[in-house]
Design a protein around this nucleic acid. Structure first.
Lengths: 210, 210
DNA sequence: AGATCAGGATACATTTCTGTATCGAAGTGA
DNA sequence: TCACTTCGATACAGAAATGTATCCTGATCT
């Protein structure tokens, strides 16, 4: 009995290492340009291990998308919960920027994350299953952000020019596009974060009614 | 003399057909998943013609990106100029939606266009040269839109909560993301256009100060 | 008309990738 | 300790893609 357990454990870590390596390779060169062998090299395995765990590169990609989506959504939920637990945030239209910096903190995306999520995005544009997963993920994230916005605004007697759900979507969208521009401009980790923060801050301020 | 002219003309149309076919194939399956042969089939040529015109698939891709970028920027400039030539647009915060529908008209992007521009985008994320081209294109488009916004707002004694350049960027960004969501949701041409229009309209209204 | 040449087609050599079938090592239970 | 199982490594065959070298056609000029 402990037999199968130990064995599945090994299998699990192998799968995981392959998935991690694949994420990196996919981010770097894209899913289509990545060969199975390249992924295996990066993971420190041979193709034997790969085909023992996945039927194809596509199957691995699907698994990876699920993993990433869950991680993202979970991460946002967590951070939002943490923010709310810190007690009511003090906000005025003046320091809205600071609040959004907190929201930004939700996902300190670096180059790697931006590349990976855009890789997922383009494949979701072509595959209905992936599209659904992508839309659900985005929707879940927006819902979390919207809740946070409601909370913050409510505790400060403020509101937005749009339903919080729309504001959330705009912010998430702007965050993504700012990240893309930042990566293209070759910004490093910290510059990237500040760049995104500034952008989101000014948008939030503009959408706030006080 | 008319020799070389006629010959270059044939060459030009061959190049063009290859570029058009490539655009379609790239949009459909992505640049990395597209084989040179597939592109040639789509264009009605063999690989001989291809390698007689391009050194590699990458070179063709670069040429295509330039073409698309120029077309986009030019298209936006044109439509904006046309809108401005129609005379001062009447705008109130009430019909801001309608004005933005005009702005939307700038580029009635269908599924094909969305796929292609996102394909270009992800490669630009990985290639510095492409990145520069991409950023310049976006910048040029935003500039046009910003001019239009200034014009419209000026003629109506209104302004925005943000510099028009920022508003333009937000709108272009939102437009892109709405298009992506629409394509993922499987919307057709007309639904897609309305979806994007609604989105941009409400954002514009929210950012308008009257 | 005949010569010439550009440009696309054909044929070929090479590389790369995939997927499967088989092997061997390491860990586990009796 | 010995048989057994699992799982990753190795070896192999086939397919697909690339790039080049050569051929062929049709248009142009004298």
């Amino acid at each position: 009995m402990s037999d199968t357990v130990a064995i599945s454990r090994r299998r699990e870590t192998t799968r995981r290492r392959l998935l991690d390596a694949a994420a990196e390779v996919f981010a770097e060169v894209g899913m289509d340009a990545a060969s199975v062998e390249t992924i295996c090299d990066a993971a420190g395995f041979t193709r034997g291990a790969f085909y023992s765990n996945f039927a194809s590169k596509e199957e691995l990609f699907f698994a990876l998308v699920r993993l990433v989506a869950d991680a993202r959504v979970g991460g946002v939920r967590e951070k939002v919960a943490a923010l709310e637990a810190e007690g009511p945030l003090e906000v005025t239209s003046r320091n809205a920027v600071e609040v959004v910096r907190h929201v930004l903190d939700i996902e300190p995306d670096d180059r790697f994350g931006v590349l990976l999520s855009n890789e997922i995005r383009i494949h979701a544009l072509r595959d209905p299953d992936l599209a659904q997963a992508y839309l659900e993920q985005e929707s879940a994230i927006c819902a979390s952000v919207a809740r946070l916005l409601d909370d913050v605004a409510g505790h400060n007697g403020m509101s937005f020019h749009l339903p919080s759900r729309d504001v959330a979507r705009i912010l998430v969208t702007a965050w993504d596009s700012a990240a893309v521009r930042g990566v293209m401009a070759g910004l490093g980790q910290s510059e990237l974060a500040r760049h995104i923060g500034d952008e989101l801050g000014s948008i939030t301020a503009a959408l706030l009614v006080d």
